[in-house]
């Protein structure tokens, strides 16, 4: 449920209505950013990667968390390779 897609805020288009332009792979759309401004000045949102759902930015993507998820998967792969290598050398 709830299709959401990452995009980057490129400009504030209407500060009063809390609207900003978001870029998704070159496709641009005006979205409401009321949910992600927090205590910041609205201009500080420019450059944020956000998750967009039905024209609303609903969450700022946490870069460190994204990297952490990928790191776990890379380690998992490496661990498997080591085990496989150990098995091969054990057999040899």
């Amino acid at each position: 449920m709830c299709l959401g897609i990452p995009g980057q805020i490129t400009a504030i288009s209407d500060a009063g209505r809390k609207l900003a332009m978001v870029d998704v792979s070159g496709v641009k759309r005006e979205v409401n950013i009321a949910c992600i401004i927090g205590d910041r000045a609205i201009e500080d949102c420019i450059g944020d990667w956000v998750l967009v759902h039905v024209g609303f930015a609903m969450s700022v993507i946490d870069e460190a968390q994204a990297a952490e998820t990928l790191r776990i998967l890379i380690e998992l792969g490496e661990a498997q390779q080591e085990i496989a290598a150990m098995r091969t050398s054990g057999r040899a």
Binding site: M1, C2, G4, N32, C35, H53, V54, G55, F56, M58
Partner: peptide, 8 residues
């Protein structure tokens, strides 16, 4: 929609 869409 669920709570994802309700805020919008």
């Amino acid at each position: 929609g669920f709570e994802t869409t309700a805020p919008s």
